[in-house]
């Protein structure tokens, strides 16, 4: 599974993308976030205020209950500010 990071999420993590193998116990987006936080304290910093971090699964915004078992690409980023 590929993870991509943008804007200040990328800055805190110090990387823009990575490929990860997730444990079988991770089923939903919320599970993934909890697992990432348990693995790396930088993710705890990113998700300190979860309302400020959006997640797109295969290019579609999803909420924490979304099942990610077949996801190919998950992106984490702050609310958008283009235009």
């Amino acid at each position: 599974m590929k993870l991509k990071y943008f804007a200040w999420v990328k800055e805190i993590l110090g990387k823009d993308e990575e490929n990860i193998d997730i444990p079988m116990s991770v089923k939903t987006l919320g599970d993934l976030i909890n697992w990432l936080i348990s693995e790396d304290e930088d993710f705890a910093e990113v998700f300190r205020n979860r309302e400020l971090v959006k997640a797109a699964i295969d290019l579609e915004l999803q909420d924490y209950s979304y099942n990610i078992e077949n996801a190919k690409e998950i992106a984490f980023f702050p609310p958008v500010t283009g235009g």
Binding site: F6, A7, A56, F77, P78, V80, T81, G82, G83
Partner: peptide, 21 residues
């Protein structure tokens, strides 16, 4: 402005800021 994943970072003489929604 509210749906498309694009972000702005402003550079000032003494700091940088990610623009907030």
């Amino acid at each position: 402005k509210t749906e498309v994943p694009i972000w702005k970072n402003e550079e000032y003489s003494d700091h940088n800021d990610w623009v907030k929604t």
